[in-house]
Nucleic acid binder design. Structure first.
Length: 525
RNA sequence: GUCCCCAUCGUCUAGAGGCCUAGGACACCAGGUUUUCAUCCUGGCGACACCGGUUCGAAUCCGGUUGGGGACGCCA
């Protein structure tokens, strides 16, 4: 069977880094297996879903090169199918409407199936007993069972669960007398609205069963049925709930593998029953671990930099973000880290995804961005940095050839595009000064005299070249008793206002005689 | 509170019983190259959460403890 996966975000504005990582893993999985990567927008929340939000989503995906197959699937357009599915479950007895007291119409509730004898996803784990708080009555109705259990310390805690969890339930009072047997009553309970209320119960004895599935990433995952509750699938107002919509759409889109965040694990246990009730095969599941922030905590609204759009505006390269994100929770198994898209597709398998959460590391992303930056085609690099310069308003009087030379000089020193703003001294005489460094490096008389020497000789020399620049700097150093090379940094401060940059001889040559002299003049006593 | 999941350097990870005195990358520190800056190169720092068990042998398997996270909606 051909692989079909989907990325199913709800378009509510920003696209989160964790979300897009899920998309990347789905994409990688699909491309690796030669399958289809589908996009579904879960836009049933009318309040929050906007076209603008969908546009941002599409932009982010496009930016990262996450191309999808087939048409975008809009969940809201499939609503009638969802309701139809619910009605079918209602008429089959797989779902029910509870008795409601108020004037609001009753929702449709899906029942965790009572009969699971031939269900491959359910297994019997053994006999179980629970101590019950006799002070609280046990209530049993078609919508479940409600009671107060006593924990090891004898503390009472209220619980409610689906009937399905309590196969062969026998309830005893404090004296050990059997007061209730579920198998005798179950037919009636399921059919009628009447509730049974039992007082002074002390013990439950029942057969415990659990839903189980094999997660491609996490391995076997199971949950006891007695800890599950029936779930609302259609609201009182007639609109379908996420669980129903999600499952119906997966059926509709013929999804074979559901790859999503592991905050959905608990939902999966219920979705399995929904697939079965609808009469369709349960897809394979793979639950991705979370990405946490640099404090090791889940991302919250406060983490302003957790949105894909932010990384884009901060100037990270999409290739770098894509590469970095694919390495968060996954590795190829060898020492490779910087990998092309093709290599990633080739190497990606869900089995190699880790099952523990991963912390986002800006340092590493920055380093990776620098690597991609360094190997970028110089022409493209110039083009992109030119555009940044444009936003700074530098380009009107700037020669493109000159700019290209500057870009070439600076490329290996760049991590992010906005760093272009530090290049200002190449184009204007007004630029930012690192005052602290200026005071430290240009304070002493020796340096000033040396700079004066360089200034005078560079103004009178025949040719302003790399060689002559270097020559006079060396001479200035030896004449003023400065260690060789030690004049470079003061000179850099004088010419650029910064302590880092390209080679200082190259920088001076690039600036040209006029600008160089003009800047040195300020420091010549 | 109940249920589920997770646990290797500060961080991302390799590791499927002996190849492990635990490998790589980022970060950090030191040295080298560049007479300067950035790259780059070399080296250093640095981890199997804890306690038991299984085994000739455990980071790896099992149990418990601790710590972390998730889920418990007529949100998605």
């Amino acid at each position: 069977m051909d692989i079909r996966v989907r990325f199913a975000p709800s378009p509510t504005g920003h696209v989160h880094i964790g979300n897009i990582r899920t998309a990347i893993f789905n994409w990688l999985f699909a491309r690796h297996g030669g399958g289809k990567f589908l996009l579904r927008v879960e836009d049933t929340d009318k309040e929050r879903s906007t076209q603008a939000a969908i546009d941002t989503l599409l932009e982010c995906m496009d930016w990262l090169g996450l191309d999808y197959d087939e048409e975008i699937f809009h969940q809201s357009r499939n609503a009638s199918a969802h309701v139809k599915a619910a009605e079918k479950m209602l008429s089959n007895g797989q779902a029910y409407r509870p008795k409601v007291s108020g004037p609001e119409p009753a929702p449709v509730i899906f029942r965790i199936p009572w009969d699971t004898d031939n269900n491959p996803s359910v297994r019997i784990t053994g006999d179980a007993e629970i101590r019950i708080d006799p002070a609280m009555p046990v209530k049993i109705s078609k919508s479940g069972i409600q009671f107060s259990a006593l924990n090891e310390k004898g503390k009472s805690a209220e619980r409610s669960a689906s009937l399905a969890g309590y196969h062969r339930l026998k309830i005893f009072d404090a004296s050990g007398t059997l007061v209730f047997e579920i198998e005798r009553e179950i037919e009636n309970i399921l059919k009628n609205d009447a509730a049974i209320e039992l007082a002074n119960c002390a013990k439950f004895a029942f057969q415990r069963r659990e839903v189980v599935f094999k997660d491609i990433i996490k391995g076997e995952l199971a949950k006891p049925l007695d800890t599950m509750k029936d779930l609302v699938i259609v609201r009182g107002d007639g609109t379908p709930v996420f669980h129903l919509a999600n499952v119906c759409d997966d059926i509709e889109q013929k999804i074979t593998h559901v790859i999503r965040g592991d905050d959905h694990v608990e939902n999966t246990y219920r979705h399995i029953f929904l697939f079965q009730a609808a009469g369709f095969p349960v897809p394979q599941y793979g639950h991705l671990p979370m990405i946490v922030n640099q404090a090791g905590k889940p991302y919250s609204k406060r983490d302003g930099d957790a949105y894909v759009g932010d990384f884009r505006s901060k100037g990270y390269l999409p290739e770098a973000l894509f590469n970095y994100l694919s390495l968060l929770g996954w590795s190829p198994g060898d020492d490779r880290e910087k990998m092309s898209r093709e290599e990633l597709v080739e190497a990606f398998t869900l089995e190699r995804v880790k099952s523990s959460s991963a912390q986002f590391d800006m340092n590493k992303l920055g380093n990776m961005s620098g690597q991609y930056m360094a190997e970028m085609d110089p022409g493209i690099f110039t083009e992109k940095t030119w555009r940044v310069a444009e936003t700074q308003g530098w380009t009107s009087g700037t020669d493109r050839v000159y700019f290209a030379k500057v870009a070439k000089l600076m490329q290996s020193r760049m991590k992010l595009f906005p760093q272009v703003s530090t290049w200002k001294y190449f184009f204007f005489d007004e630029f930012e000064n690192d005052e602290k460094a200026r005071i430290k490096l240009l304070a002493d008389r020796k340096s000033m005299d040396a700079i004066k020497y360089v200034f005078e000789n560079l103004s009178s020399c025949a040719e302003f070249t790399l060689d002559s620049i270097q020559k006079y700097i060396r001479e200035a150093e030896s004449l003023n008793g400065i260690q060789e090379g030690k004049l470079n940094q003061p000179l850099r401060i004088a010419l650029t206002g910064q302590t880092t940059g390209a080679g200082i001889y190259e920088t001076a040559e690039m600036l040209g005689r006029e600008k160089t002299l003009k800047r040195l003049k300020n420091f010549s006593p």
